[in-house]
């Protein structure tokens, strides 16, 4: 069990508006080092928007996103990744015509120094980095448990392996914080159990995990803390057992009982 440490990511009063639509309304969120934080909420609550703001896909309308002392709002997307934030996508976005291994190697390139000229003339550093990348990528595939697929094209992989490869690719960038966007979508119960174990292993290996998920049993089983969003507002933030019984959360998911009004 990893120890929960200092605050790694902090969203301070973040608001995101698209024209007249307020997707996030003054959201405060803290992710601490070494924890698994689950972000839940009904469809359209703004969960993926939170990810998109953190990774720089959207620039928040107001508020601050602070990652390890650096304001992410000022960073370009690829810089956010280099700082140590990696993500997966709700709808799988692997590079289909690359093999599983190449997908991960491409992600590991982010921290490498050698550029075009080194690649062209095969400078020692470029060669060494190629070798390191390949080894590291293979190690990650093994860690996630999909190394047997390393030579297969990503688009030809079974659905479940593609989802896991997304996690492997995110880990390839050597992140401090991994954002998983519905990693269990479309999984059967057995696969979900396996995935839960994988996510735990990822955390125990020293990564911090922020997770969007709909499957309550998965979340309750693995997360240290649960944050609930509804219509862009945070309505709960506590340990799973407390959140589970919070009347506001039940209301957001199930609606108000007919006799309550």
């Amino acid at each position: 069990m990893a120890k929960i440490g200092k605050t790694l990511l902090k969203l301070d009063n973040v608001t995101m508006k698209f024209g007249g639509v307020t997707a996030l309304n003054g959201v405060n969120l803290e992710v601490k080092e070494g924890e698994i934080l689950a972000l839940i909420g009904p469809n359209g609550a703004g969960k993926t928007t939170v990810f998109n703001v953190i990774t720089g896909v959207y620039k928040q309308t107001s508020g601050v996103v602070d990652f390890d002392g650096i304001s992410l709002g000022d960073q370009k997307r690829y810089q956010v990744t280099a700082l140590g934030v990696a993500r997966t996508f709700q709808n799988i976005r692997l590079w289909g015509d690359m093999t599983a291994l190449e997908n991960v190697i491409t992600a590991t390139d982010v921290h490498k120094k050698s550029g075009l000229v080194g690649a062209l003339f095969g400078f020692p550093r470029a060669r060494r980095e190629e070798e390191e990348n390949r080894e590291k990528a293979m190690e990650i595939l093994r860690f996630i448990g999909i190394d047997e697929y390393s030579d297969r094209l990503a688009k030809n992989l079974p659905y479940g392996v593609q989802r896991r490869l997304e996690i492997a690719r995110a880990l390839g960038t050597s992140p401090k914080l991994v954002l998983l966007d519905e990693p269990a979508a479309g999984f059967n119960p057995a696969e979900k159990v396996e995935l839960a174990a994988t996510i735990k292993r990822v955390r125990d290996a020293g990564y911090t995990v922020l997770l969007i998920e709909h499957d309550m049993s998965l979340i309750m089983g693995i997360s240290d803390r649960v944050v609930v969003l509804d219509f862009g507002t945070k309505i709960a933030d506590d340990i799973p057992s407390v959140v589970q019984n919070d009347p506001r959360v039940i209301e957001a998911y199930l609606g108000v009982p007919a006799d309550a009004s």
């Binding site: 976005r93 015509d97 690359m98 190449e102």
Partner: peptide
């Protein structure tokens, strides 16, 4: 030379999904 190394991978990633490429630090 370039295709089998980092630049080639980056180009390939950009060609297949540019947004994903950028979010993976390219």
């Amino acid at each position: 030379r370039l295709t089998v190394r980092r630049p080639g991978r980056a180009w390939e990633a950009i060609r297949q999904d540019e947004d994903a490429a950028e979010l993976m630090g390219i």
